[in-house]
């Protein structure tokens, strides 16, 4: 029962492990208590609401609980800050390119309580991502760094429980070849969906508008057909602005005539 609310009676502890991120939640008579640790050496492990023992010397974070509220939710979420994606090897998009590639975005765990009206306790990243910056040093925006192999096929994607596959659709109707150097994705506009065997995000459409480097990023709510049967898990934190041209350039700014 992935991502389903669970009931924790007083004095009980539950454990989750989503890839490298291990989470323990304890319910005492007056409090919720959480503890998180990360083990980068076990990225494939998946444990859902088990009764595993708590490790020694745990430094619990305490949260005052609403009396008689025993419902706990652990939901996937995406980073609030933009994710600045950089390919591991150069990737060029010649004129007329119309293709999709996939990136794997580490999820955050959104921990909330309450049966009817969820009350957020905290959000914990499954992986601590490095900081990155996009744009001019005086005016740009802070984000998380993400390196990608930019896989073209679903089968080539890493199958790990803490990663959500994000389809990026590239369309280059301009007359210039575009070099993919960095791409700034506003993850707060993405939805999370549960696929048959993995998490997916809604897709990102990138359209280039010529040699000026201007491009349009669109964040439709649906994902790609390659994801197969999906069900919606977490809505976007914020709806995407409609029909706005962005210039997250530097990104894909190098043009080869």
């Amino acid at each position: 029962m992935k991502w389903q609310p669970v009931t924790l009676r007083e004095g009980t502890v539950r454990h989750w492990q989503i890839g490298p991120c291990k989470l323990w939640v304890r319910r005492t008579p007056d409090e919720w208590q959480t503890y998180v640790e990360r083990d980068p050496l076990s990225p494939n492990v998946e444990v859902w609401s088990s009764e595993l023992d708590v490790p020694d010397e745990v430094n619990w974070t305490r949260w005052a609980a609403v009396p008689h509220d025993y419902t706990l939710r652990v939901q996937p979420a995406l980073p609030e800050r933009p994710v600045i994606v950089r390919p591991e090897s150069p990737f060029m998009f010649p004129p007329g390119s119309n293709l999709t590639f996939f990136i794997s975005v580490p999820i955050w765990l959104n921990i909330s309580t309450g049966a009817d009206r969820p009350q957020l306790l905290c959000e914990e990243p499954t992986v601590i991502l490095s900081n990155s910056f996009f744009g001019e040093p005086t005016t740009g925006q802070l984000g998380y760094a993400l390196k990608t192999t930019a896989r073209r096929h679903r089968a080539e994607l890493r199958q790990q429980p803490h990663l959500a596959a994000c389809p990026i659709h590239i369309h280059n109707p301009s007359a210039a070849t575009v070099s993919f150097e960095r791409l700034c994705i506003h993850a707060r506009h993405l939805h999370i969906l549960q696929g048959e065997d993995r998490l997916w995000t809604s897709k990102v459409n990138v359209t280039f508008k010529g040699e000026t480097g201007e491009q349009q990023l669109a964040y439709p709510a649906q994902t790609v057909d390659a994801a197969g049967e999906t069900t919606s898990l977490t809505p976007a934190r914020e709806p995407a602005p409609q029909g706005r041209f962005q210039k997250p350039l530097a990104v894909l700014k190098t043009f080869i005539a």
Binding site: R86, S130, N131, S132, A145
Partner: peptide, 11 residues
């Protein structure tokens, strides 16, 4: 520098 999460990868 690359391994430190507080160090920006860009610039």
């Amino acid at each position: 520098a690359d391994a430190n999460p507080f160090a920006l990868d860009e610039p």
